[in-house]
Amino acid sequence: MNHWLTLAAGFEGIGLTRSWYAIPLIVVISLVYSASRHESSELIVRRALRLAFTIGAFMFAVMLVLLFLSRNA
């Protein structure tokens, strides 16, 4: 729990508090996209988890790049 609080405080410190709004969107987009591809509920959930992780990792990587580029701004 403390790790999450630390992470949240870190996000707030660098002005990224609003990034938390992306998380429900990522989950919803992953679920609906996977549901439109597959019929089996088990497959939908499994693919949605994978897609959510992929999107999250991609966005996190982009955020790191942007933070690096703006480190002196």
Partner: peptide, 12 residues
Amino acid sequence: LAIFDAVYGPAY
């Protein structure tokens, strides 16, 4: 996406 799924079924 949901409308397409309802009309044509899932893509895969």
